[in-house]
Nucleic acid binder design. Structure first.
Lengths: 189, 189
DNA sequence: GTGAGCATACCGACCGGTCGGTAGGGTGTC
DNA sequence: GACACCCTACCGACCGGTCGGTATGCTCAC
């Protein structure tokens, strides 16, 4: 349970990292934006890159929970895929800044944290692939294109979303999510 | 026509930027890797971010040329789309480092160069969308999913390719490209 | 002899992180 | 109820080191 000060720091860091990049954002800028002091930041975080790790942790934790919940509903493969895609696109649109940081600054993570992170992401990907493979085995989906390639395409759009998505754009997130789901399901037919 | 020294500098910069990021790579590291001196670098480039711009310019110029050439063949929409996708995926795989830098460090470009770059990329995207829209108008493609969303999906996979593609992976680039093209064309049916 | 193509020494700005200190609220003792 | 004691939360001046960039001069082809 983060304190109000801690939360202000994280929020400011996400915003600045997304806008300027991790290295281009100084600790001074973060504390200024969060309206706290350097002392406060280093009271809660041991180093600047703890902020990065915390941002990733929050993002992947919530997305994993979403997917597990949907799979738990036990719907047919096509509906499961649709629900996962819609939830993923919508939640990514809600957290564009976090996603932008995640995509661009992942490589700044140290060796061990990178390993921890990769393991978590791998689990996430494989859960999704399993849904598709099951649909293919049951004959509900075509097997022409291997599941891993479908996964690459899906996570490709989602991760690139911060590059073009604007909250004040013409299409609301739910419409975008619907269109993407339509296209992917059409490709799986 | 770049001199040998200039080329060595660009090559080293691409490699280092891709591996560590733009800000995390010092000018010292670049000149050391390129086996030249700082004087040589600042003889050819006015500033560090000229290197970034040059990398983008080379990448987008060659990809634009590829697409224009394919469209010039006057094939039916489906074949045109397939050719474009295969050429794009294969050439991206050949230049993963450039693409990684492009995706991650784009936001470091200054205001005016960003504008110039965006204009070029916009032209590129719209050329691709026009092919899809024509196919939809002719009834060769389904119109269920709007062309711009298809574009987002396509450029999503391609731009995320550096995240997972490894030259020594199990599937050669041409196979990957074929699978991606199959999936996209299936979605357009 | 003159300009392109470098080499080398150096500058000032800035950055992440540290550290001595403070403010204020809880707690145990008499 | 009042005083000593301590602990968490926070402050902000400061430090060593690094970074992008520059100033100056050499060298060699034409």
């Amino acid at each position: 349970m983060p304190s109000a000060t801690e939360q202000k720091i994280i929020d400011a860091a996400v915003r600045l990292f997304a806008a300027q990049g991790y290295d281009a954002t100084s600790v001074q800028e973060i504390v200024a934006a969060a309206e706290v002091t350097k002392g406060a930041l280093y009271h809660y975080f041991r180093a600047k890159d703890d902020l990065l790790f915390e941002i990733y942790r929050l993002l992947i934790t919530s997305q994993s929970a979403d997917m597990d919940r949907i799979i738990g509903l036990g719907l047919p493969a096509a509906e499961t895929v649709r629900e996962i895609l819609v939830s993923l696109v919508v939640s990514t649109a809600e957290r564009v800044d976090e996603t932008a940081v995640f995509v661009r600054e992942l490589h700044r993570l140290g060796e061990e944290r990178m390993a921890e992170f990769r393991a978590e992401r791998r689990r996430y990907h494989e859960t999704f692939l399993a849904v598709i493979e099951k649909g293919q085995a049951d004959g509900e989906f075509s097997s022409v294109v291997p599941a891993d390639t479908v996964g690459r395409i899906v996570f490709g759009v989602v991760n690139q979303l911060p590059m073009w998505y604007r909250p004040d754009g013409p299409k609301p997130p739910a419409s975008l999510a619907g269109e993407i789901a339509d296209f992917v399901l059409a490709g799986l037919r």
